[in-house]
Design a protein around this nucleic acid. Structure first.
Lengths: 123, 123
DNA sequence: TGTAAACTACGAAGAGTTTCGTTGACAGCT
DNA sequence: AGCTGTCAACGAAACTCTTCGTAGTTTACA
């Protein structure tokens, strides 16, 4: 099972596609709002080659859509950063995240619920 | 304030240096336990150029030590992954981390304490 | 003194990523 | 038909990262 590891440019495309749903290069490019149109096109073609997006070529303006789930790819990205940066310690990762980003009260409570449920499975 | 973004190879060196303290190329290379000696050397020279490590050239075998704090770099790495992968949502990042890695009971409790203290600062 | 081992230094090769110029096809309009 | 704008496709160029071959220096020691 090889881990999927999009490049930064590819992440930007994928985020746009997850947000927009199936979309043309033009639409994705405008959602991103920066860089050259051809760069967006090229990256989307590369993503199609890699199978991370699928392309409907019916219309002249091809319609792309993400072929991978957002959560799954995020999970892979977390694995990467855990291994490379945190030596596998998820607790340390979360500590840094808490230090850097203030979470909304609602988010903190939801997080606590998640921890509760995980702790329930252990003991 | 430019964010420090070591490459994967550089992270490996830095992790070894944080673990060993000031060390020679040889020591770091053996700690890593893989790859070509010259690759380790080259990466450490690059790190020195970038200022992420400092080099004591007194002895023939130069002694390198990390010039940046582990926690600070981890924080930068978290910022990166938050922006690129999670659209800034630390809650989502932590959710993925919890799904992927089982934390020890002690870690879960420590995490809960951290959440408590952060929540205390709000409302 | 001669030789082997350990070390730094240099640079080139190869892969991967991103950017963008150019080309050719197609569609709409006058 | 001719003009204009939009599109996909291709490939070159620049850049980064990693690997490793080669060279030259220093140290240890017989």
């Amino acid at each position: 099972m090889t881990r999927i590891r999009p490049t930064p440019g590819e992440w930007e495309i994928l985020q746009a596609l997850w947000k927009l749903g199936p979309a043309t290069v033009r639409a994705v490019h405008e959602e991103i709002g920066a860089g050259h149109y051809n760069t967006t096109l090229k990256l989307m073609q590369i993503l199609a080659e890699k199978g991370l997006v699928v392309r409907d070529e019916e219309a002249r303006a091809h319609v792309y859509k993400a072929a991978v789930g957002r959560e799954a790819l995020q999970g892979d990205a977390v694995e990467d950063v855990l291994e490379r940066v945190f030596g596998g310690s998820a607790a340390e990762l979360m500590q840094r995240a808490l230090e850097r980003r203030k979470l909304k009260k609602r988010e903190l409570e939801e997080l606590r619920r998640m921890i509760d449920s995980f702790e329930g499975k252990k003991s």
